[in-house]
């Protein structure tokens, strides 16, 4: 098994600084966040430009070239509801450090994102949901099968579909947490990859609690077979946990300075 893939989530138009930078095409705030995340140990960077209905193509092209140009073709996850923007981003994307990730398809309205990924030899994040949160793991598995079959029909390598179990918020859905973890095990037992917005579990908790809860969740999820997560890599406790779990899982060779690598 390879190392757990940390996808840095901090280039997101929901942040006022990033939204402003995207509106004015000002590279500085975006590159600053890219740098922080890479130094903290992110492998991929998610680039969320929002719906970007009017200028998505131009914006994603610019963002991909700006970030990859500044950081040795760092691999990116392209995240927007504008499919033409994703396609344009992949058009200028340099694959030397890894395939682009399309973020994301689901088994409902967004199933076409799988076709988009297949047509462009990209990895696709596939949410095991259709409309809203699946009621149980049987429902999740139905969606997974739909997405997997479609991906295979399109000629995708199954390893290029990263299934998202949908992490749920503990404050409100505490009784569903073990379902999510059990579903990760189901994905893993089929030899498939998985990822997701892991820190959703701690949404609404006090700021000092979130790194603790996220670290516990990532350790339990990695035990269950999670192969990636979309997280804030600048969370030191979380990254230390990921690196330590990678050692215990024999994903990465131990050295006394493993936390500094």
């Amino acid at each position: 098994m390879g190392k757990f893939v940390v996808i840095g989530e901090r280039i997101h138009c929901i942040s006022p600084a990033i939204r402003e930078a995207m509106n004015t095409m000002n590279p500085e705030p975006i590159l600053k966040r890219a740098k922080e995340q890479l130094e903290a140990g992110a492998t991929y960077l998610d680039v969320n430009i929002g719906p970007a209905e009017s200028n998505g193509v131009e914006l994603m092209t610019w963002a991909v070239q700006t970030i990859q140009g500044a950081f040795d073709n760092v691999p990116l996850a392209l995240d927007t509801a504008n499919m033409a923007a994703i396609e344009a981003g992949i058009g200028v994307y340099n694959r030397s450090k890894g395939k682009p990730i399309v973020n994301s398809a689901d088994a409902g309205d967004r199933i076409g994102y799988l076709d988009l990924a297949a047509n462009n030899d990209a990895i696709c994040i596939a949410l095991c949901s259709k409309a809203g949160v699946p009621a149980d793991n049987d429902e999740r598995m139905t969606y997974l099968q739909e997405l997997l079959e479609r991906g295979l029909e399109l000629g995708m390598d199954p390893e290029d579909i990263w299934f998202d179990p949908l992490f749920l918020v503990i404050k409100g859905m505490q009784d569903k947490q073990m379902d999510v973890l059990n579903f990760i095990r189901d994905i893993s037992e089929q030899g498939l990859n998985s990822t997701g917005g892991l820190s959703n579990n701690s949404n609404g908790m006090p700021k000092h609690i979130r790194p603790i809860m996220d670290s516990a969740m990532v350790a339990m999820a990695m035990m269950a077979g999670l192969t990636s997560a979309i997280v804030n890599p600048c969370d030191l406790r979380l990254m230390e946990t990921v690196k330590s779990c990678d050692i215990i899982k024999n994903n990465f060779l131990y050295a006394d300075s493993y936390l500094e690598v």
Binding site: L253, A255, D256, S257
Partner: peptide, 14 residues
């Protein structure tokens, strides 16, 4: 010692 091999490379890099 494979772990030491890696550690030495880390230390030299640092």
């Amino acid at each position: 010692d494979i772990n030491l091999a890696k550690q030495l490379n880390v230390l030299l890099s640092q």
